[in-house]
Design a binder for these strands. Structure first.
Length: 912
RNA sequence: AGCCGAUUAGCUCAACUUGGCAGAGCGUCUGUUUUACACGCAGAAAGUUAAAGGUUCAAAUCCUUUAUCGGCUACCA
């Protein structure tokens, strides 16, 4: 068989995904077992016009590992893909393009034409992200792909909105909201990002009091809002101002008279202790205004310019221009007391970074009281959802819920689900599932629909059930029964509130289920300097570049191998390591295939009889132990531990030791000293047995690696002799052959052989000591050594049984076993476990000083450990209180150390 | 301001849930072209686990305090 010398990922990545998808391997229907237990995940829908970043790659890798692992265990597995219409961000992209290419705004086109343009854009670019998800190897069921603005999902949105409205859980009202003057829409609290500015100013303005020469000084960071002031407030206990309560201020620049009121909200210690109150432009002032029945004067337009209510002088001025002008005017009037430098944090738009304006506005809200209780009760009663890692997310989630305010759900955008509310000429509102229904309710055909659309997260909140067909009219589907609640949600911490919590509430409310059992919160992928990756900083690493350079499998393994839930810095070197690992797997397979004539994958070959060698028992024991532990770790979502186990099993145990140990027995050619080259030999029964065994072990190892490295393992598995759908899990017997439908090795406890592992450990120790002596004594690799080993009878037998292998790997010519060490003075020596000793005669090669130093170093090392142990053992407290088996263990270890030290000291004496 | 997380080899990180010999990869040094792989093989060096205190027979691990870095939430006249 022709097989390349190193792994080239391209070809495998190009062919296998297409085949899997075409053969329906990703759909739950591939499972032929009617009683199969479902396993499901819904993808957190990426923005439809977005592109893949490292965070996606990380989350998708974890979801795919889980999906493939469960699928291979025979679960009826569904990983459902889809995309989100992403209201603001998609609309912004199209708006930008429109401005750039046609110099037009959305209002130039009008609502219908504009939304058509967005649909066109979606058609053009929406495929990008799904192509990228395919590139990752994600085993999602494309036949169930969903989009938040699909017909059925939109219907679900209307149904939910109307139901909540009918039950009084959704209301329309005037509130202070976060207004983005650039995007011209309201935002929810969660879409606001605080930004600290060091160059802020605190401006002290003097307000004259009516019929008095006294003035009251107020401090503000937003002087222009004084044009909308409707009171000044002081603390009722503040003696300085006690006599002024009830008096009137003559508000400069406006000719308005406003009262001085007393309210506990005011902190007498801060600033001047007097606060200007602008109910229409500040949330606290709004609340205070309600308590004191103050007028709400809106002085700004939706683009943050001042309006007529601010006075004709200010009308049309930008807020910042107006700010300067107000300061100027106060200065002219002699009413500007001072301006202090002040560090301030400003609310900014998450997307466009514009400073937001708190403004009084009529919007739609979801009342969160009962919603919050759904989520809180589930957490308190059932610890649901179960977060992983549990600390700190459970606590953060709970705290947030406890302080939850109502949710602003209307957005002044055109791209999204238009609010199903209609108004008649008198402003009466009719909320209905359809226009017809609204007309019927209103008994009036002259209705206009609310201009606003719903927050994107309103529809994402339904994702856990709307994707399974629920839309209010259809309320029961097979998928909903089978796959909701989903088993696990994998996502980043930034959307625990935005999305996770809302899915919990909405799913409980509308289908009376949990959306998911577990939530895995992944860490953040940082750049190599520990900075968050971001577009503006330009420090992002594009997963597609990494795929291109190192292969998808190496990238996946790197992501899965990162510590679960912890942030980590991205370093290409880590992927390089895994690229090397992929190549190692490739070459190990290559070796097995080059020596596979007459052999095939055969699982019965692993049922060992008495003729099996220690190495065989050992590797099979290691294989099963690895399988058991990998399953255990995956069950705990400890992906990095599972990766580590697989990495070391494959590289250290399988490649470095097992292949090396059995190489000779498999090879169809042997080195001939006569001809000085490799000579072919006839293949024996014994060889075929060895070859079959190693192929089978390899096949099992590939299965365990498959969820992490799907392309490489499929490529290699198909090359192994005798792989076919016969090796599939029982649930997939009729599917065409692929490793992804074989059964995941669970490991067999009875195949674990501690005795063989200990014996093998002795062999490994012996070989390692020989290598160590060779390296430290600078003995040429070509030099054949003679080994003298003293050991007890049992150990002698182990070494004797492995003589050929030991000689081969240690590059030795003979192995002399005896009860007591029997070697010339001119030998390099080493102490082994269980009282065994090693001597290598080095007549003419030995440097006695060097050997003395070497032995002394070893004695010193043992002494450090020995003195620590004897210290511990002579501590009465330890002996009395530590678990007895621990004490025994240390005692045995100490004896071992003493034995070895004695042997080494004798050797040292002999050198003198 | 409050809450949370992090600090371990030169670098990037494990081990902490459940206290019991602190490991890996990269890098470094030495040797090696041995018939799968130099993206390899073999060997080696490298640690006061941020600091201080406490609990314990025993602490990287549990508790307290401090320092530095990061995150989240809130307020900000």
């Amino acid at each position: 068989m022709e097989i390349e010398k190193s792994y080239n990922p391209k070809e495998a990545e190009e062919t296998h995904y297409e085949r899997w998808e075409k053969n329906g391997c990703f759909a739950p229907e591939i499972n032929e077992n009617p009683d199969a237990v479902p396993f499901s995940i819904v993808i957190p829908p990426p923005n439809v016009t977005g592109s893949l970043h490292m965070g996606h790659a990380l989350q998708h890798t974890i979801m795919d590992v889980l999906a493939r692992w469960k699928r291979m265990q025979g679960f009826k597995t569904l990983w459902l893909p889809g995309t989100d219409h992403a209201g603001i961000s998609t609309q912004l992209q199209v708006t930008k393009k429109l401005l750039k290419e046609e110099k037009k705004t959305r209002w130039d086109l009008g609502r219908e034409e504009f939304t058509n343009r967005v649909w066109d854009w979606k058609k053009q670019y929406g495929g990008e992200i799904t192509r990228q998800i395919r590139r990752e190897g994600a085993s999602v069921d494309w036949s169930r792909e969903r989009f938040t603005m699909d017909k059925s999902l939109s219907k679900a949105v209307r149904e939910v909105f109307c139901t909540l409205y009918e039950q009084g859980w959704i209301y329309r009202g005037k509130r202070i909201v976060n207004w983005c003057p650039k995007d011209k829409t309201v935002l929810s609290d969660l879409e606001v990002k605080e930004e600290t500015r060091k160059d802020g100013k605190l401006v002290y303005l003097q307000y004259p009091i009516r019929n008095s020469t006294r003035k009251l000084t107020v401090a503000t960071t937003r002087p222009e809002t004084m044009l909308g002031d409707s009171a000044v407030a002081v603390n009722p206990k503040d003696e300085r101002y006690a006599d002024l309560i009830g008096e009137m201020i003559v508000l400069p620049l406006t000719n308005r008279e406003i009262p001085i009121v007393a309210d506990e909200y005011v902190d007498a210690e801060f600033g001047t202790g007097a606060v200007k109150i602008t109910p229409a432009h500040d949330p606290n002032d709004y609340e205070l205004g309600l308590r004191h029945n103050l007028p709400q004067i809106v002085v700004m337009n939706d683009d943050a310019t001042m309006n007529l209510a601010a006075g004709s002088e200010f009308n049309g001025l930008d807020r910042y221009v107006a700010r300067e002008k107000v300061i100027e005017k106060f200065d002219e009037l002699g009413l500007l007391e001072k301006i202090d430098e002040y560090e301030i944090s400003l609310p900014c738009c998450e997307r466009c970074k514009t400073v937001l304006e708190p403004i009084l506005s009529e919007q739609w809200f979801v009342k969160m009281d009962e919603m919050r209780d759904f989520a809180l009760d589930l957490m308190k009663a059932e610890n649901s959802p179960r977060f992983s890692p549990e600390v700190p997310h459970t606590k953060v989630y709970t705290n947030w819920l406890e302080n939850l305010k109502d949710w602003t759900i209307s957005r002044q955008l055109w791209w999204g689900h238009q609010i199903p509310a209609w108004y008649d000429d008198l402003g009466n509102v009719f909320v209905a599932r359809t226009f017809e229904e609204a007309k019927a309710n209103a008994q009036n055909i002259n209705l206009t629909q609310d201009e606003d659309v719903l927050d994107t997260w309103f529809s994402s909140g339904l994702w856990a059930f709307s994707t399974f067909g629920w839309n209010g009219e259809v309320i029961e589907t097979d998928d909903l029964n089978d796959f909701c609640p989903t088993d696990v949600l994998v996502t980043g911490r930034d959307i625990i509130f935005l999305w996770v919590s809302r899915m919990v509430m909405m799913t409980k409310k509308f289908v009376d289920k949990k959306p998911f059992k577990d939530v895995i919160i992944t860490g953040t992928v940082l750049d190599k300097n520990g900075q968050r990756m971001s577009k503006t900083k330009g420090n992002g690493v594009d997963p597609l570049d990494v795929f291109e350079k190192y292969g998808v499998d190496a990238t996946r393994l790197t992501l899965a191998g990162s510590s679960t839930g912890a942030d980590f810095r991205w370093r290409d070197e880590n992927v390089e390591q895994n690229r090397n690992f992929a190549n190692k797997i490739w070459n190990a397979t290559r070796f097995c295939l080059l020596n596979s004539e007459g052999a095939k994958v055969d699982h019965s070959s692993l049922l060992l009889d008495d003729s099996a060698s220690i190495a065989d028992k050992w590797i099979i024991s290691r294989l099963n132990k690895t399988a058991i532990n990998v399953n255990k770790e995956l069950g705990k979502y400890q992906f990095h531990t599972a990766v580590n186990l697989l990495y070391h099993f494959f590289w250290d145990d399988f490649c470095d030791w097992y292949i090396e140990l059995v190489k000779d027995e498999m090879s169809s050619s042997v080195w001939s000293d006569e001809t000085g080259q490799m000579e072919p030999v006839a293949i024996s029964e014994q060889q075929i047995k060895a070859r079959t065994r190693i192929l089978t072990i390899l096949e099992i190892a590939l299965r365990m690696l498959h969820p992490f490295m799907p392309f490489l393992t499929e490529e290699l598995w198909l090359k192994l002799p005798n792989t076919s759908s016969k090796l599939h899990h029982e649930a997939y017997k009729n599917a065409s052959q692929t490793i992804m439908l074989t059964s995941f090795p669970l490991g067999d406890l009875s195949a674990i052989d501690e005795k063989a592992e200990a014996e093998m450990q002795a062999v490994i120790e012996l070989i390692s000591k020989v290598r160590n002596i060779r390296a430290e004594m600078s003995i040429k690799p070509s030099e054949r050594l003679s080994l003298h080993v003293s050991a007890d009878g049992d150990l002698q037998k182990v070494f004797a049984d492995n003589e050929a292998r030991i000689l081969k790997i240690a590059r030795a010519s003979n192995l002399n076993l005896s009860e007591t060490l029997n070697a010339p003075k001119a030998s390099a020596k080493a102490a082994l476990s269980r009282g065994a000793e090693l001597a290598i005669p080095l007549e003419g090669l030995i440097d006695f000083d060097k050997e003395r130093t070497r032995l002394e170093n070893q004695v010193a090392k043992l002494e450090v450990e020995g003195s620590r142990l004897s210290g511990q053992l002579s501590n009465e407290g330890f002996v009395a209180k530590a678990p007895p088996e621990k004490v025994v263990e240390l005692r045995e270890r100490l004896i071992e150390i003493e034995t070895q030290t004695n042997a080494l000291n004798l050797n040292l004496e002999a050198l003198n």
